[in-house]
Amino acid sequence: MKLHFLKSKEKRNLIEELEKIYGITELPYLLLETGKQKIRGFSGHLSKEEIVQLTRLTNVEIIGAYLINKKDEEARISFDAIQLFKEKITKNIIEINNQQLQLWLRGYDLEIRAPRGIIILKHQEDFVGIGKSNTEKIFNYVPKERKLKTKIS
């Protein structure tokens, strides 16, 4: 596994971007960039050197959790990282109702007017995903394997 630990400056730039979009002001993780511009965060106590040593001893497949996708213009938080950051997200949140939630979790885009760009969807007290708005519609980014397969009751 090729390791690219984010340097302090890269981390600072990323946090600045996250603050602008989400209001997130800290990332208490060792950050690594893996393929396809995905940023993973590791909260463990092993040092960088120990991690590098481990990669020499065995096949390291995954380190920490997938947090952020930098592929698009704006840094997009992953579906599961939203839960990890929920106390820190303060911007671009839109509340959806129960009917919209049922559609959203099944992978449908939502016809909701919202400012252009990344939108965090909230249902009651739960953060239920991330989408992208073109001002007319919020495009669905629920990962395929996490979409509900049941019919709407």
Binding site: Y29, G41, F42, S43, G44, H45, L46, I51, L54, L57, T58, N59, V60, E61, I62, I63, G64, A65, Y66, S78, D80, A81, Q83, L84, E145, R146
Partner: peptide, 22 residues
């Protein structure tokens, strides 16, 4: 990996090797 991701586990490193070799 999918299950750890879903649970928000951030302190794990996943390795792939036979147990004895590792």
């Amino acid at each position: 990996s999918t299950n750890l991701e879903k649970c928000g586990v951030t302190n794990a490193i996943i390795t792939r090797k036979d147990a004895i070799g590792l």
